[in-house]
Design a protein around this nucleic acid. Structure first.
Lengths: 217, 217, 217, 217
DNA sequence: CATGAATGAGAGTTCATTCAT
DNA sequence: GATGAATGAACTCTCATTCAT
């Protein structure tokens, strides 16, 4: 994929006043709405501006390119997710595997699910936007937080912690993603946390170094 | 997302002559190549035609709309995946959980990995194309095959097989997807099958009905 | 002829500013000019825009489809014609047949002749555009105005007024059309009004109810 | 209107064999049908060929350009009309005005009405095709035939016979055209001949030289 | 001669972006 | 700053015409 450097994907103008912030928020909100109502191919700057109740000119005041707007929306979402994971992981340092898994799964399902529609809409954006590096960075951050946490598990120790973390993260996201893409099933959504805990705990216990596990108990 | 019915997404002239078939193949190939080299936003019908060594007119003779072309490419890929899963699942009817998991994981990783680039490129297509129903259908097929297989496990029995299958499929795809999106790591790729087996088997054994497990042993 | 409903043939942004109105007028004028200079098959949106001194984008801001543009031009012309006929007919209520005919013929010839080139150019547009219903509506309006007038003739009364009106209108338009299509002959143009009066009056007097004619004289 | 000389509007190949003639006829027929079913803008060579049951290549064997095909169809129609008028006019040499009018009106209404749909479809073709000269020529022929006939009227003589003929022809065609364009009304169609006779005879009698009329009677 | 796959110029239309008001 | 009319490059798609089979 041609990865031309994107100059200034970041919004040029840092909003300093309340009015500005309100405008930016309205634009963010409008972007998500258009995304959901019309789909990415029909998301035009004019449509977003209209729905946000501002003019195109104003929109361009805050986001000098369309890509910058989409990037910002994606960023806002992923940043929130990363922060949640980091907070949860940090809080669990020194806990048992079971406690860790329960907390992480709960937090992750919660954050991905509470804005279910938004999450779904942003998949297309991430896929199309030239944001691969950024997305990879976020995933890296998430994994780092998880890895740091796993290292402090009171009842387990892992030989290849990088691999274990990778699988942990992958396993966490897989079923959630499938759920997001599919027709929203309330049933599945209810079962998801417990099932995800089962999956993760099952895996982590299997992979935990037996010697240490013994020592821990 | 506005889901206007797409009339005749696959309504394309069926090639009747050998020459035609070669043309269609060249167009398929070119589509993947452009997707990888330029990305979906820069995939235009003219660029595809040029790379395929034909004129736009010819392209449109076989794919009456751009969407039809993308859909066909996606379809070819997913059909292959679904077929692979179905074959593998069917072959494992009556086997043990461990055998099932090993076979399925191997087949799935293999098919997704052998055309790694193609798989990656198609994510954006699926996300943007109005192909949700089709993609969901494929997932349904996959799950049905897995469920039918799991029901025949010689050493296990599940209470809520629908949920178990859903998680099984989700867990299978999660880490693979993460791998596809990231920078291809040979290390991870090597470990993936064993790790996936561990994850799946860990989960399935945990969820298997204890009574039956006892009986089986 | 496949008469698919044309959605929003006239759905165009209503110009709100003076600048806009000037733009729209320029586009109208340019359309007629291109029609005359190049003919309908060579009338492209780009050519019209160029001649109007604006960009294609601007043209499409006011006329969302090419058809809408052509329709608007046709409409402007026919509306003017219909208005002229209605005004003339209304003014002659209660007059004698001879006065009526003289006035209507004069008005009709005048309006069709003053923008002779425009009239001619629009025949092809009307023939090709999916405007049959609209054109028929205009003709209906014209006939209604003539019929209402004829009913009030002070010196005549008709048995089958619908038929008489139909023929009156048809006879009126026939020679004018022939003249428009042909090479403009100043001679014929000069004679036309008197001749048309003769034709119409001859016909109407023939068809007038004899009893009433007697009474009137 | 840019009147670039049309090279070779005539069909290149004069069909010599029965098979060829059948093919040409099928193509003619198909053209009319497509014209009626789809309208001029959707009349493509491929569609015509398909409906005629031949390949595009074959169509181009007989008509080297699309214009040549349309021109030929138009020609066939107008030739038939012109021939009919000429025959009728010639047969009436030396007759009375009343006889002349009756015969001409009958013939003209008949020929235009029997292939009503065809007549209507060809208006757009004539308007768009670069056939103005040809159409004018046909009209000229028709007028010449009428004029020659009128000159021999046994009971009338005209001062300005050119003008009278022009009006006669124009009056003849006006109501017919209106009828063709509108929704076909059986009522009007039935009345048309008598009404047209009335119009024409009324006019001609008015314009006939009184002196001669006296002498004639 | 007939076929129909291939061609590619050119048409209609969209939309990110600019800038005079 | 805000506005929204104007821009025009770029895209999708059509169709008259050609020519290898």
């Amino acid at each position: 994929m041609r990865t031309e450097p994107i100059y200034a994907l970041d919004a040029r103008k840092q909003p300093r006043q309340a009015r500005s912030q309100a405008t930016v928020d309205a634009i963010f909100e409008a972007t998500i709405q258009v995304l959901l109502a019309e789909g990415l191919p029909r998301l035009t700057t004019i449509r977003v501006a209209e729905r946000a109740g501002v003019s195109v000119g104003t929109l361009y005041q805050y986001f000098p390119q369309k890509q910058a707007l989409l990037f910002a929306v994606l960023q806002r979402h992923l940043e929130r997710v990363a922060q949640t994971v980091e907070d949860a992981a940090h809080a669990m340092h020194g806990a048992t595997l079971a406690q860790m898994v329960k907390t992480i799964v709960t937090a992750f399902v919660q954050i991905k699910t509470e804005n279910l529609e938004e999450s779904r809409a942003l998949y297309a954006v991430a896929a199309e936007l030239d944001s691969r590096d950024y997305v990879l960075g976020i995933k890296q951050r998430n994994r780092a937080a998880l890895e740091a946490m796993l290292k402090t598990a009171s009842d387990a120790q892992f030989d290849d912690i990088a691999t274990v973390t990778f699988m942990f993260a992958g396993v966490l996201i897989g079923p959630i993603q499938v759920l997001l893409e599919g027709p929203p099933s309330a049933d599945m959504l209810r079962m998801l946390p417990a099932q995800l805990e089962s999956v993760c705990l099952g895996y982590l216990e299997r992979e935990a170094n037996p010697a240490n596990r013994a020592k821990a108990s």
